[in-house]
Design a protein around this nucleic acid. Sequence first.
DNA 1: AATTATTTTTAGATAAATCTAAATATCCTA
DNA 2: TAGGATATTTAGATTTATCTAAAAATAATT
Lengths: 218, 218
Amino acid sequence: MLSYAEENYLKAIYHLSQETGESVSTNAIADSLNTKAASVTDMIKKLSKKGVLSYQKYHGVTVSEKGEKAALQVIRKHRLWETFLVDKLKFNWDEVHEVAEQLEHINSSLLIKRLDEFLAYPKYDPHGDPIPDENGEFKAKPQIGLAELTVGSVGIILSVKDSNNSFLQYLDKIGIYLGAKVKVLDKVEFDGSSEIQIDNKKIVFISKEVADNIWVTD
Amino acid sequence: MLSYAEENYLKAIYHLSQETGESVSTNAIADSLNTKAASVTDMIKKLSKKGVLSYQKYHGVTVSEKGEKAALQVIRKHRLWETFLVDKLKFNWDEVHEVAEQLEHINSSLLIKRLDEFLAYPKYDPHGDPIPDENGEFKAKPQIGLAELTVGSVGIILSVKDSNNSFLQYLDKIGIYLGAKVKVLDKVEFDGSSEIQIDNKKIVFISKEVADNIWVTD
DNA sequence: AATTATTTTTAGATAAATCTAAATATCCTA
DNA sequence: TAGGATATTTAGATTTATCTAAAAATAATT
């Protein structure tokens, strides 16, 4: 059984290890959780003693099989709750994260089973990220970055890479949402920015930074 | 802002003070929370410093106005979640308590506003207890104990006094549920037990202890 | 390769929530 | 009302999660 804080560390470390594919450094963990390196050292010792991380002094940590299972269950709960908040309680996609951060630690297997059922077994959360099943299995949609679409081609918005609130609010404002059909009308060589048409209607300009942050169908 | 533990203490103390109407003793609190008296002393010092309790050494505590407001908001969240679990997730009324104990501490006013809306502003929880509104206002249904019904009279099951799981499971088993119409067919002088007909159909015998634990319409 | 810079760990403290054991206050009863 | 029984508080520890500052290890650079 993991504590609230332990679950948060494990989840963060799992995400970091997915991003980099390598062992995760103490400082990277400290940054992502807004804590100090010393606190991280203490915690990773505890988590490796519990068998969810493997840790070599001065050389970072990797997530064990057992740790991955546990992390995926937390992520499952997080994404189910986000789905609940958006689908049932009419939250915007930029309002769900903080609340789901709390809800993901509620401990009740019956609750999650029933919630999943109530939501009709969703496969993806409101940001397009896959929801692991009870066994931790999930499948990401085949996807490429919006920035890689060539002029004239079309894609469906699938998810965002970094789902921080101000970015999501910006997308909302310009009219980009999950499932929107986007067509690349033009691209500027100089700065990589592009002109995009949403649902054959609204035309917007987005920077390369924004396009790089959006996944579309391949 | 109250911590998880502080909220639990405050809620328990509020309930105890409602039951007795007097100041609440250290031991009574310790019993109801399964902790030790020494822990309670520490906590009530902290809570009275925060202004939610008033405390006189060796003479117990009372809940302040500010404390009552805070306690009622926790109770509001608890009962809204219980309603959600039963109405939407198909929990049985004996399965909701432990989960609601966790959910009641989730901190998000938007969440509670939307949950209330989603549940269509319920006035009573699955055990028949009133749900306080955003201002802490609530009204209990006029009610008497089932044991006080005279032979031949009829009542509607409104709520239970002590909603511990084994009691609720017992009620389920014999067919008593919230909203059921009950008619008292007979009462035994000797031990106070009675013969009850549920919904003009099933006839069951219940002890005085059980009847004392059930509220019906007056 | 030697030195500097960076990262990580250790040592020692702190705050929250809990406990046991001892001290003290209040209650009750003979 | 005096003294024992009960209730409450204090003192001192423990666990968890944090921190700062110092020490140690690793990485980078000239």
